[in-house]
Nucleic acid binder design. Structure first.
Length: 807
DNA sequence: TAATTCGCTAGACCGA
DNA sequence: TCGGTCTAGCGAA
C-alpha cells in the first residue's frame, strides 16, 4: 500500500475474459482519451467468479462459513473465499472460485451438503457480473488505477465526455457453383470495406481501379484486407449478417491459408448458440446490422417486408437496389469478365451497411449505455434480456438477490396457464362520421407505476394495503408503502423520457445533440414497452402471473370505465382495443367537448396514468366479418385533412399481393376521402379486366410468406411450403425463417399445386381467376357491403347490374 | 434460452 | 361437393 499507482483514462469499449493458469481473468478494453491512441487491454486478476447459497434455518451461518472455507468440494475444488452477506434481512453465504470452470463444477457439488438449502446467481455470465458489480458504463470514460504489475486495482466511471468512436463496414463476395456455398471449398472473390480511412475493394482477380486493388491470389487478398482494417484502427465494425455469413466464412478461409485473423487485437471468437452463431472480435465491437435491423423491426421502428440489405435500405432511406444476383457473381467468376460490376456491387453493399449502421448506432449506443452492456451484447439481445439486465443492475443497487430462472416444470406450468389480455370491444359496423379516437399513453407501464406493480410488492403483509388504492380487480394487491423493484425502474425510465424531451425542446432543431437525444428517447421507449411482455413471459426470472394479470385487469377496468363515462356524457362508444377508445360524436358535440371529457377523465386517473386525445376523424369504416359480426382489429379512418389510416386490412399485410392491396387502398380512398363509391367500383372492374387480360406484372402478384419451419414439419401443405419444396428440388437453398415470395400459376389442381417461387414464374403465367376471386375481391367486397353495394358482379367482370345501388 | 394476448383470414383436410 | 374444423401466418395493441 501507499506506493504510487498508474492511472489510466479512456473510453470503456468492452469487457472480456480469459483463463490463465486455471484462473479466470477479466480483460477491460479502453481507448485512450483525445489523442486517439490505440486500444489498451488492462486485466483484472482479482475478480473471482462467485455464487450465493442459502442454508437451512438450523445451521449456523458463522459455523458453515468457516467449514466451507476449509472444505474441498467434490471434484477437488477449494473456494477462494466464503463470506457471510445479508440481503433483505436474510443471511447468505457468498462463495468465490478461482475460475468459471471451477464455479460450474462447484455448482453441482455444493447442493450435496445437507445444510445447503438453495443456490443463487450461479449462472450469471462473468463479464456481465463485472459490469454489474463495478457499476460500469460502457462507451463512457473510465478511470483505472493499476498496480506496478499493470493489474487493475480500481476501476470507476468518470464524467468526462467520451470521444466519438471509429466505425467501418465490410462485406465479402463469394463464389459457389451451387446455391449452397461452403467456406471449405468455395473462395472469397472480393472484400469491400468502407470506413473513415477510406474505401477499398480487395479483389482476387485481374481488375483494378481507383479503389479496387487487384490481388494475385485469395491469400494475399485476405492479408491485405486484414492489414488495411488493422491500420484503420476501428472501434466498431459493421457487417450485414456477418454473424452467420461473412465472419464464419472469413474464419474458415484464413484458417485454410494459416493466416492469423487479427483485426488489431486477438481474433474472432465464433459463439454457437444452438443453431444461432455470433462472431465476437476481441477488443472491437462487431455490430451485425442485420441483427440490429431485426431488433428494430420487432420493436416496430420501421417496417420492411423483407430484411435483405437492399429492401431495408429502401425501407429506411427510400433507395437501394440489388444490382447483382448470386448467379451473376458466379458467372463473373467463371467467365473472368465483368469484375468492375462485381467490385462496384461489393463496395455498394459495404457502403449500405455502413450507412445503416451509422443511422442506427446512436440508438444501439444509448440502449447499451442504459442497460450498461457492450454493443455486441445489446446488438444481439432480445427484449427480455434487456429488461433482465436492467433489473439486475437495480437489484445490485438495492442489495437484493436475483430470482433464479424457472425450472423446466415451472415453465411448463406457466405455459399451461396464460394470463388474460386486453379487452376488445366489438365495433359497430358501418361508415361513421365524426369519430374521436382516445388512447391511454403507455397504458401498461403507467398502470405498473401508478399501482406500484412488482413481484416484490405483491400481496404485502400490511393490512391497510389490502384495502388501499392498489387493490386490483383480480383481488391481489400491491404495497402502498414501499416502492417495488419494477415500478421504480419503470418510473425512472418514464422520468428520463420526459427529461430528454425537455432537453430536445430547448435545443435548436438542427443541433447535433438532437440525434443522441432522439436515440435515447427511442431506447427508453423500447425498454418501457418491454416490461409487461417479459413479466408475463414464462422463462423470465421476475415472472409474476399475479402482477401481469393485475395489469391487464386494471387495463380492462379503465377502458370499460372510459367507455361508460363517455356514454354518460353523450358520446357513442363505437370501438375499443386494449388502450384505445373510439367515440362517435352525435350532432351538437365538438372536438372541444371531447377534449373536456378527456380532461375530466384524467382528473380521476391515478398517478402517472393519462388518457390522450389522439384525433378527430371525418370518416371511419368498420366492416362485417364472414359470420355477420363486426370485425375487430380492422378499420380505416379518414382525417379532416384527408389522411387515410388503414388498420388490420389486407392493405397492411405482406402476405397479400400488391394488386389486391393497392386496389383495396384505392377503394378506401374513393369511399372515405372522395366519397365516390361508384368510382371505387369502376377501379375494381378495371383491375379485374387487367388481370383477365394477363397485363398485370408478376411483381404485383407476389405473395410473401415466411417459412417458419422445415417443409417436412408441416401438417398441411400450404402454398408457400409447396413452392419451397418445388424450389428445393430445383436446387435452390431454402432456409427456415426465410421470406418466400410466390405466385399462383396456371398449372396445377389445388392452390398449393399452382404456387411457385416468383423467380421460377414466367411473366404473365399467373392464374387470373385466383387473383380475382381469392385476392382482389375478398379485399374489397366487405368494404362495398357496408355501403350496401353488391359485389357479385365484380366476379363476372361487371356484366351484371348491381349498379342500382349507386343511383 | 430469451416479451404478451386477442383476433382475422386463407387454405388444406376430412367426413358426410 | 359441401361445410365444418384445424393449421398457419400475420397484424393490433
Amino acid at each position: 500500500m501507499g506506493h504510487p499507482l498508474n492511472v489510466d483514462k479512456g473510453v470503456l469499449l468492452d469487457v472480456q475474459t480469459h483463463e490463465e493458469h486455471g484462473k479466470s481473468i477479466v480483460d477491460v478494453f479502453i481507448r485512450g482519451p483525445m489523442d486517439g491512441s490505440l486500444i489498451q487491454r488492462v486485466s483484472d486478476f482479482n475478480f473471482p467468479p462467485y455464487f450465493y447459497i442459502s442454508i437451512i434455518p438450523s445451521a449456523k451461518p458463522a459455523k458453515v462459513e468457516k467449514e466451507l472455507s476449509e472444505e474441498t468440494l467434490p471434484g477437488g475444488i477449494k473456494p477462494v473465499f466464503v463470506r457471510k452477506v445479508e440481503k433483505e434481512k436474510v443471511v447468505y453465504l457468498q462463495m468465490g472460485f478461482a475460475s468459471i470452470a471451477e464455479l460450474v463444477r462447484a455448482r453441482d457439488g455444493i447442493l450435496t451438503y445437507p445444510f445447503v438449502q438453495s443456490l443463487h446467481e450461479s449462472n450469471i455470465p462473468y463479464t456481465k457480473r463485472y459490469f454489474l458489480d463495478k457499476r460500469l458504463r460502457p462507451y463512457s470514460m473510465v478511470e483505472i488505477e493499476r498496480d506496478k504489475n499493470g493489474n487493475i486495482q480500481k476501476i470507476k466511471n468518470s464524467d468526462e465526455p467520451a470521444p466519438p468512436l471509429r466505425t467501418g463496414a465490410f462485406d465479402i463476395e463469394t463464389y459457389g457453383k451451387f446455391s449452397r456455398i461452403s467456406p471449405e471449398k468455395d473462395p472469397i472473390i472480393s472484400i469491400a470495406i468502407s470506413c473513415g480511412a477510406g474505401k477499398k475493394v480487395f479483389l482476387h482477380a485481374p481488375y483494378a481501379d481507383a479503389i479496387t486493388i487487384s490481388q494475385p491470389d485469395e491469400k494475399t487478398m485476405l492479408e491485405s484486407f486484414l492489414t488495411f482494417t488493422r491500420l484503420a484502427d476501428l472501434d466498431i465494425l459493421y457487417t450485414y449478417n456477418g454473424d452467420h455469413f461473412d465472419m464464419p466464412f472469413l474464419v474458415e478461409r484464413t484458417k485454410k491459408y494459416h493466416i492469423p485473423i487479427d483485426f488489431g487485437h486477438s481474433g474472432i471468437q465464433l459463439i454457437g448458440k444452438g443453431t444461432e452463431t455470433s462472431a465476437r472480435i476481441h477488443g472491437l465491437q462487431h455490430v451485425d446490422v442485420y441483427q440490429l435491423v431485426r431488433l428494430l423491426v420487432r420493436f416496430q421502428f420501421f417496417k420492411s417486408p423483407r430484411l435483405d440489405l437492399e429492401s431495408v435500405m429502401r425501407a429506411v432511406f427510400g433507395e437501394g437496389e440489388k444490382t447483382l444476383t448470386h448467379k451473376g457473381i458466379t458467372e463473373i467468376w467463371e467467365n473472368q469478365k465483368g469484375f468492375d460490376v462485381l467490385a462496384k456491387y461489393n463496395l455498394t453493399d459495404a457502403e449500405y451497411t455502413q450507412r445503416l449502421g451509422t443511422e442506427f448506432l446512436p440508438l444501439l449506443m444509448e440502449l447499451a449505455r442504459l442497460v450498461r452492456q457492450p454493443l455486441f451484447e445489446v446488438n444481439r439481445a432480445t427484449a427480455s434480456q434487456l429488461v433482465e439486465i436492467l433489473l439486475m443492475h437495480e437489484s445490485v443497487e438495492l442489495n437484493q438477490l436475483f430470482p433464479n430462472p424457472p425450472t423446466h416444470d415451472q415453465v411448463e406450468g406457466r405455459l399451461q396457464n396464460p394470463i388474460e389480455g386486453g379487452y376488445v370491444k366489438e365495433p359497430v359496423a358501418g361508415l361513421h362520421t365524426n369519430l374521436a379516437v382516445l388512447d391511454y399513453r403507455s397504458m401498461y407501464p403507467s398502470i405498473m407505476i401508478s399501482h406500484n406493480i412488482s413481484p416484490d410488492t405483491l400481496d404485502c403483509v400490511h393490512s391497510e394495503c389490502k384495502k388501499g388504492a392498489n387493490l386490483s380487480p383480480t383481488g391481489h394487491w400491491f404495497c402502498t408503502q414501499r416502492k417495488g423493484l419494477l415500478s421504480v425502474v419503470l418510473e425512472r425510465i418514464l422520468d428520463q423520457r420526459i427529461e430528454v424531451q425537455k432537453q430536445m425542446d430547448v435545443l435548436p432543431k438542427k443541433d447535433t445533440q438532437q440525434i443522441v437525444l432522439k436515440a435515447r428517447k427511442q431506447a427508453l421507449k423500447i425498454l418501457l414497452n418491454s416490461f409487461f411482455g417479459t413479466l408475463a413471459y414464462p422463462r423470465f426470472r421476475w415472472y409474476s402471473r399475479e402482477s401481469a394479470s393485475a395489469i391487464t385487469a386494471w387495463a380492462r377496468h379503465y377502458i370499460h370505465q372510459t367507455l361508460d363515462w363517455a356514454e354518460k356524457d353523450g358520446f357513442t362508444p363505437t370501438y375499443a382495443d386494449s388502450d384505445s377508445a373510439f367515440l362517435l360524436l352525435p350532432k351538437p358535440k365538438t372536438e372541444e367537448d371531447v377534449k373536456k371529457f378527456v380532461e375530466k377523465v384524467n382528473k380521476k386517473l391515478p398517478g402517472r396514468m393519462e388518457l390522450e386525445f389522439e384525433g378527430l376523424y371525418e370518416r371511419g369504416l368498420f366492416v362485417t366479418k364472414k359470420e355477420g359480426k363486426a370485425a375487430k382489429k380492422r378499420y380505416a379512418l379518414a382525417s379532416y385533412d384527408h389522411e387515410l389510416t388503414i388498420v388490420g386490412f389486407e392493405y397492411v399485410r405482406r402476405d397479400v399481393s400488391i394488386i389486391a392491396r393497392e386496389t383495396q387502398k384505392k377503394v378506401l380512398e374513393e369511399i372515405l376521402i372522395n366519397g365516390n363509391p361508384k368510382k371505387a367500383h369502376d377501379i375494381v372492374l378495371g383491375v379485374v379486366k387487367r388481370l383477365r387480360e394477363g397485363k398485370v406484372p408478376n411483381k404485383e402478384l407476389v405473395v410473401l410468406t415466411q417459412l417458419q419451419r422445415r417443409p417436412e414439419n408441416y401438417a398441411a401443405t400450404a402454398p408457400h411450403v409447396s413452392a419451397a419444396i418445388k424450389a428445393q428440388k430445383r436446387g435452390k437453398e431454402i432456409v427456415v425463417g426465410q421470406m418466400l415470395g410466390f405466385i399462383i400459376t396456371k398449372t396445377g389442381k389445388s392452390i398449393s399445386d399452382k404456387a411457385e417461387l416468383e423467380e421460377f414464374v414466367k411473366e404473365g403465367d399467373y392464374d387470373a381467376e385466383y387473383y380475382i376471386q381469392n385476392q382482389v375481391i375478398p379485399a374489397v367486397e366487405k368494404i362495398f357491403a357496408e355501403l350496401g353495394i353488391d359485389s357479385t358482379d365484380l366476379e363476372r367482370g361487371g356484366k351484371q347490374t348491381g349498379l342500382g345501388a349507386f343511383v
